[in-house]
Write a protein that binds this DNA or RNA. Structure first.
Length: 619
DNA sequence: TGCCTAACCTAATCATTGC
DNA sequence: GCAATGATTAGGTTAGGCA
């Protein structure tokens, strides 16, 4: 436990995140106050509301397996996941990690009241949510799944400390909680895995398979530092394509099982430590959760950042996610400026492996045009910290790109059941009527917000689009949405279509049918205008209406629409209702394939040309 | 400044995977 | 079956945000 002393003195990692400070030197694109000095990292000068970026191009999760699905139509990332965007001297849009601006810890997430209420509501139903529920909740709350997991851990602890017994009434497997048994010193029984055939049991996260090459990177990092801070973990995540939370777990397990492999470790035998067993393992043909994204070389299991470095500015295109049966469009090319090794290790530690700019995804300016500074304007985040969605029925873990070959599809297609529905059912509450007369019609169409107005509907309503009579027009909107899912038009095409109807569904890079994908550009005349506005570029029309602070209780995406959270809370008024299996976790794996619309290179270049600092067209 | 709690940690254990 | 390792748990601690 002497490691506490290490934690107690994290000075090397404290201070301005070198990643940020070193990587961004162009004017901040986010409006903030006081004015940014241009060397922003985690702009402390940003609006305070929920510590969310008010607008702009944002990204989430680790930079490696960055979310293409955030390309267009995805909401801004959660407070602990947002990135900064800027344009470097060569006119390249640059993103940096936002949440971890300072220190070794992740930036503390400040949950809004509505988010807490929703978490509490679900906690009452099930204090041991499975990965599916966590992801679902995370998506609907706009926070990272890992944050949901941590919250539940802390919450269980709080509850347990209060009652000196683990949460009663709520063991997922129906076991009687140790309510009558004083927990300490013995531990309370942990939830047991589901039994075969019990579909109500929520599965664990799919096991992440770390390839040898990924392991190599991690091992190297482990030898340098057994306690990487969030910035380092993010960097590793970027390099390996493994989600940062998995990186964190990997280090935890590693520390527990390989206490000798680090100069800072007990043994301090980093240089002489023989390769770990996994280093000698045969590379798996296919990774289940961090599978290859490209069909060619074996190393493709690694994101390009982990492959032989390409010079910055000459990024390789990295097309995340070509899962079987998945529609794929063009990715928007985005460049990540990587920190200099020294910057990453101000303490003088050995530099990390080669830094590579990774073209990944960005959110659509239209998203910000719709304009909720803290919450996504378009969709509940599929996986706030995920980088590649878990496709419906996909075993791929967060941040993992779909494998090249078909993977077991344990789940059937998503059912229209939503988290809310599950809560409703568990609580014995009637389906939330809410101001969503068309909710039923949307069932199965927009599983993300079942029971609530469909996303498109809400967008339309929020935008006051004439094409939508209200929160849930029903089949018409559905038809429009589904039609758009058929192909993967360019963003401009989508916008063109969108402007025609004042709102448009976005294409889906996920399973072509039955999956939701929304891109709404209410009143957005063009992507250029939207981008200019969202970035606050002079001459732009300015922020779009609606780019105001999120009001707690309001739907994060649609201020004028009923909140899903509200509905959950309303539906779970009977908070003491014992947890009951949510039934087939229809929403656990089937609704997350929400990808963004692709952007053609021409469009992309046009955007770049308009950005401040851009060398101009053709540059 | 103190409280609350997110974040991070260890240790133990379960689950999955490959041999 | 076993070893390796990822995932999850309880519980301890640290530290950020806020009243």
């Amino acid at each position: 436990m002497c490691r506490r002393s290490l934690l107690a003195n994290p000075s090397p990692k404290e201070g301005l995140d070198p990643v940020v400070s070193e990587s961004i030197r162009t004017p901040c694109l986010f409006p903030r106050e006081p004015p940014c000095d241009g060397k922003h990292g985690l702009c402390s000068c940003q609006p305070r509301e929920a510590r969310l970026p008010p607008t702009g191009i944002v990204m989430e999760g680790n930079l490696g397996a960055a979310p293409l699905r955030r390309l267009h139509g995805m909401p801004p990332p959660p407070p602990d996941g947002w990135k900064h965007a800027a344009v470097d001297r060569s006119g390249v849009v640059v993103f940096t990690v936002g949440p971890v601006a300072t220190g070794s810890r992740r930036r503390r997430l400040v949950l809004r009241l509505s988010q807490k209420d929703a978490l509490q509501a679900l906690f009452q139903q099930n204090p041991y949510p499975g990965i599916a529920t966590r992801e679902r909740l995370a998506r609907e709350l706009g926070i990272a799944e890992s944050r949901v997991q941590v919250w539940f851990q802390n919450q269980r602890r709080r509850r347990f400390k209060q009652s000196r017994s683990p949460p009663e009434h709520v063991h997922p497997e129906g076991e009687a909680g140790p309510t009558s048994t004083p927990a300490p010193p013995s531990r309370p029984p942990r939830p047991q895995p589901s039994s075969p055939g019990d579909s109500a049991r929520e599965a664990r996260r799919k096991r992440t398979v770390v390839s040898p090459s990924q392991t190599s990177i991690l091992v190297q990092a482990f030898r340098r530092d057994r306690f990487p801070g969030i910035a380092a973990r993010e960097e590793l995540a970027r390099q390996t394509g493994i989600p940062e939370p998995r990186i964190q777990v990997w280090f935890q397990n590693r520390r527990a099982r390989h206490p000798q492999q680090s100069p800072s470790g007990p043994g301090g035998a980093a240089a002489t430590t023989p390769p770990a067993p996994e280093d000698r393992r045969t590379p798996p043909a296919v990774q289940s959760t961090s599978p290859p994204l490209r069909p060619s070389p074996p190393q493709e299991s690694m994101p390009p950042s982990a492959a032989p470095a390409a010079p910055f500015g000459a990024p390789a295109f990295w097309v995340p996610g070509t899962a079987p049966g998945v529609c794929v469009g063009q990715p928007l090319m985005i460049f990540m400026v990587q920190p200099s090794p020294g910057a990453l290790r101000p303490s003088g530690k050995p530099p990390p492996p080669a830094q590579v700019a990774v073209p990944w995804a960005v959110s659509s300016p239209a998203v910000t045009a719709l304009g909720q500074p803290g919450q996504g304007a378009i969709l509940p985040p599929a996986q706030p910290e995920a980088h590649i969605p878990r496709w419906p029925g996909s075993p791929y873990g967060e941040g993992a790109a779909p494998p090249l070959e078909p993977q077991p599809q344990p789940r059937s297609l998503p059912s229209p059941t939503s988290l809310l529905d599950g809560l409703l059912a568990a609580a014995g509450a009637p389906a939330s009527p809410g101001p969503s007369p068309g909710a039923a019609a949307d069932h199965g169409v927009d599983p993300a917000l079942p029971g609530a107005p469909s996303l498109l509907d809400e967008l339309l309503a929020a935008a006051g689009a004439p094409a939508s009579p209200g929160p849930s027009p029903g089949p018409s909107a559905v038809a429009v949405r589904q039609a758009a899912l058929a192909g993967t038009p360019s963003l401009v095409e989508q916008i063109s279509a969108a402007t025609g109807i004042h709102a448009t569904p976005g294409p889906s890079l996920g399973p072509c049918a039955g999956e939701r994908a929304h891109l709404a550009l209410p009143g957005s005349p063009s992507v250029q205008v939207a981008l200019l506005a969202s970035l606050g570029i002079p001459g732009s029309p300015g922020p779009f209406p609606g780019s105001s602070p999120v009001v707690a209780g309001a739907h994060p995406a649609f201020p004028g629409s009923p909140s899903l959270i509200e509905e959950i809370l309303a539906a779970t008024a009977t908070r003491d209702t014992p947890w009951s299996p949510p039934g087939p976790p229809a929403w656990d794996e089937g609704v997350e394939a929400t990808l963004e619309a692709p952007l053609s290179e021409e469009d992309y270049q046009a955007l770049l040309d308009m950005l401040p600092g851009s060398p101009g067209p053709g540059a």
